[in-house]
């Protein structure tokens, strides 16, 4: 049965171990945004032993490229983007301490295995709910790669940001399990 958790970042191994695919989590605290281009740069930095723009230990990365903020607002609409584009980068970040990823859509087996081996979790947020999710972001600040525009790395402060556990640290996958329950075989 699906459980509801309220968690504050950074996430610990214990936090992650308590989560099961299908659980609903309300996240608060600081999370970081990154899409394809920023991921490539982060992985290049790790491989060249450079200094990362934020602490990966216990971090949660949100795959999002927001719309520009209106005057006086921290951010525009900010729902998740499709996650598979980050599949080739996520495992190395997980190995270096990343505990959570927020996106939408399927991850490959390598990412799922990394979640299991290093205790990390992949959360799904509701795609196309950018207006609603953007409102739950209380602060946003570009901390690296400003030239990438919507793809820059932003530090966000969120309050009770609703996500669902898709891939837990035990190898479960909500997309596969949920679909099996409602599939009608001929």
């Amino acid at each position: 049965m699906s459980q509801v958790h309220y968690l504050t970042t950074p996430l610990s191994d214990e936090d992650v171990k308590n989560l099961k695919a299908g659980d609903i989590v309300y996240l608060s605290g600081t999370i970081f945004t990154a899409r394809d281009a920023a991921h490539k740069r982060l992985v290049d930095l790790i491989e060249n032993r450079g200094e990362l723009p934020f602490q990966l230990d216990g971090a949660v990365i949100y795959f999002v490229g927001p719309t520009p903020p209106k005057p006086g607002e921290p951010i525009g609409s900010a729902g998740p983007t499709t996650s598979y584009r980050m599949d080739s980068y996520s495992p190395i970040l997980i190995k270096h301490g990343l505990k959570g990823m927020i996106g939408k859509g399927k991850r490959n087996q390598v990412v799922k295995d990394a979640c299991k081996e290093y205790k990390a979790v992949y959360f799904g947020a509701t795609g196309g709910a950018g207006a609603l999710l953007g409102k739950l972001i209380k602060e946003a600040k570009v901390i690296a790669y400003e030239e990438l525009g919507p793809e820059a790395i932003r530090m966000l402060r969120v309050e009770n940001f609703p996500v669902t556990v898709i891939n837990d640290a035990y190898g479960n996958d909500l997309y596969e399990e949920g679909r099996k329950l409602y599939e009608v075989k001929d």
Binding site: V64, G65, P66, T67, G76, S77, A78, G79, T81, G127, G128, A129, G130, A131, L132, G134, K135, P150
Partner: peptide, 13 residues
């Protein structure tokens, strides 16, 4: 929310 507050429905416009 999008309609009332004139926020884009989705960040992918």
């Amino acid at each position: 929310i999008a309609k009332d507050e004139k926020r884009p429905l989705c960040q992918d416009t």
